[in-house]
């Protein structure tokens, strides 16, 4: 906001929380990126690192929650300020869930005996990964700038993710029917794709929060 509060501490405290959200968001994006790499090339050490980083992300979620709570208790924000103080709690929770999905992706990928790189389902899933990563990066920018148009575009792009998920599901089914011996691999691939679809849904939730901060309108309620 270009017009500052009379009590400058509120703005400083709120900006610090926003910085933490961005930090957490970037870490989550890198987790997805790492998990996708693990999906393509099995690497036990990387999986361990990923799990450790997820714990760090959980800690960041708690830290943001605590800071937002303190901000509300001490500054008693109203209207826009209240939404700005409340939203980090929700956004951090969504990011934390995305982080969980990245972790579960890495663990599941580890179960694949050899990454079936040439499979169509695998390629689609990687495509989904790239898409949700850009969506996440964009929504972080939209959050920073309170840009509801950008947030709306991010929400629209989730349709692509859903479509890709359906395509991966179909490709997986086809693979099972063609080669029933590799059925387990294909089921894993279908579930991996589903993970990224869930990441897309959480990103859409964040986009809805961004919209609510600015307009005060709850998209889920009006939908």
């Amino acid at each position: 906001m270009e017009n500052a509060h009379i009590v400058g501490r509120f703005d400083r405290d709120l900006n610090k929380i926003k910085d933490r959200i961005l930090e957490m968001g970037n870490l989550v994006i890198s987790q997805i990126n790492q998990a996708t790499e693990v999906m393509q090339n099995t690497d036990a050490a990387k999986v361990d690192r990923l799990v450790a980083t997820d714990r760090q992300i959980n800690g960041m979620n708690k830290d943001i929650h605590r800071r937002a709570e303190r901000l509300i208790a001490l500054r008693q924000p109203m209207a826009l300020d209240l939404r700005q103080a409340l939203s980090p709690i929700n956004i951090a929770a969504e990011l934390e869930r995305i982080g969980d999905h990245a972790k579960s992706t890495a663990k599941r990928s580890h179960k694949l005996a050899a990454p079936p790189k040439d499979q169509e389902a695998m390629q689609i899933t990687c495509q989904m990964s790239g898409l949700v990563q850009t969506m996440l990066a964009d929504i972080l920018v939209a959050y920073t700038n309170s840009d509801i148009e950008m947030a709306a575009k991010v929400r629209a792009r989730d349709l692509d993710v859903d479509r890709l998920n359906k395509a991966a599901f179909a490709a997986g089914l086809r693979g099972i029917s063609q080669d029933p011996a590799k059925a387990e691999t294909f089921v894993h691939l279908i579930l991996l794709a589903r993970n990224f679809e869930r990441v897309g849904d959480h990103t859409v939730n964040i986009a809805r929060h961004v919209h609510q901060i600015v307009t005060g309108e709850d998209l889920k309620a009006s939908a």
């Binding site: 924000p77 109203m78 209207a79 005060g216």
Partner: peptide
Amino acid sequence: VFTNPQNEQTQNYITGRI
């Protein structure tokens, strides 16, 4: 009024901005 004021001036007043 206190959650979603329609007027910018109201918003600025109740959130403690100039």
